[in-house]
Write a protein that binds this DNA or RNA. Sequence first.
DNA 1: TCAACAGAGTGGTATTGACCACTTGCGGTC
DNA 2: GACCGCAAGTGGTCAATACCACTCTGTTGA
Lengths: 253, 253
Amino acid sequence: MTTPQRITKQSQTRERVIDLMERFGVGNAIPSERQLSVDLGVSRLTVRAALDDLVREGYLVRRRGSGTFVREPKIAQELTMTSFSEDMVQRGMRPGSKTLSLTVTTAGAYLGRCLHVSPSERIVIVKRLRLADGETMAIETLHVRESLVPGLTPTDLEEHSFYELLATRYGIVTVGGTQTIEPTVTNEEESAALGVPLHSPAFLFERTTRAENDEIVEFVHSIYRGDRYRLVTELNRRDRAGATPVFVLRDAG
Amino acid sequence: MTTPQRITKQSQTRERVIDLMERFGVGNAIPSERQLSVDLGVSRLTVRAALDDLVREGYLVRRRGSGTFVREPKIAQELTMTSFSEDMVQRGMRPGSKTLSLTVTTAGAYLGRCLHVSPSERIVIVKRLRLADGETMAIETLHVRESLVPGLTPTDLEEHSFYELLATRYGIVTVGGTQTIEPTVTNEEESAALGVPLHSPAFLFERTTRAENDEIVEFVHSIYRGDRYRLVTELNRRDRAGATPVFVLRDAG
DNA sequence: TCAACAGAGTGGTATTGACCACTTGCGGTC
DNA sequence: GACCGCAAGTGGTCAATACCACTCTGTTGA
């Protein structure tokens, strides 16, 4: 059901349908399933499987007795495993990062538990601002074992995405993680950094990220401006799996 | 692909597989797809379609060459189309509802836009507290066209789930909706009602719900205590569709 | 002129049969 | 006893076909 890694007729069909979607344009119907199965030389079942995925991902809508139509593109990215940098690029904005501080300390009890390491392990703590088109969007505190990222400098992080650095320089591929989201209000430091009034509503994100070997790579604590972000979920009685939320950047002002 | 509303072999198969899952227990394999297709008297493809859904919803895991196994149950409910009442029952808590006010006014510009009705349409506005095991969890403001729910009383809402009432008494079946989530802080009224300090962090949920004919049924504005709820998301580099968040009730204190 | 109807076309469901890729365990071999 | 390899069983993919329920449209009838 999930997209296969190997080249399969279903995945080929998917790609060719995506091409067709662009050709026909938003709001229009793509050829019928039977027509597609003839045109693409695959069975209708294969066509349906490919369309199923595209429908579930929100690119197409089916109307029984009528046809399958190209949906208008989503306005926002899914709340998923993308870095802030990637995310902003996809939204068509210029991402930025300003490193406020980079310190090394021992983990201590709390961080040790978060990162699954000994409390005496040395940890790099990086505090940085996240910018979009020059405007401050969030303040992020990154915690990572020093042994994983030797020689990391503040400017590294302003020039590259952290995940990019992990992958290319340190050979660490992240595969998943857990994220919790809470409402909070900004404190003095956060308000000053974000340029919002004291005690403004904000999202508190906490994320732990895992590598391929199931080791915990990082623990990130982020404060996102509540006046610039909101979460949007499409609810669905029939198909409970469709409740994938998107993290939406609001209009300014 | 989506669960059908009519009785279908696939939905029957789904139910019978769920029975089997309970019988075999967490961690164990259920019978093979071929075996199930014989036992249940349906084709293997139908079995697969039913299993697909259960896998996507996280109840089963498939291991190629090995079998299909019962996953351990999720710790929390998905952020989905369940009513507060259903939700609390599933968490093993006793839901409660205390109606604070029930008024009827004209929609006006803003509500008219939210509900897709004329600004002069008469709207029932219900304000009520949501309780779990006697403790106040949220304050909810419900907006619904008066013509949809004639004769609705405050006590109705304390004795039944609103969705239950809609379905049984008014014959309105809800099929989906859109929900937005923002961080906020409680105002004087909300703080008093929830029993938290003034300006406490909270989640602001806004939901519009659609009926079968795509008409908008309700617009709900809810304030959830930030000290009792958090959102949890499992992130996944490989399968982007799997980022379904859960709305977790925190430990008290 | 307009409403009702019939038919063609669409997605939704289901069957049967086949082959592939992978896991596992059994049995033979060294 | 330890190791290797093979075969059986599993999920993954795909084909060809059939019928149902629904939508839309063009035609027919009043």
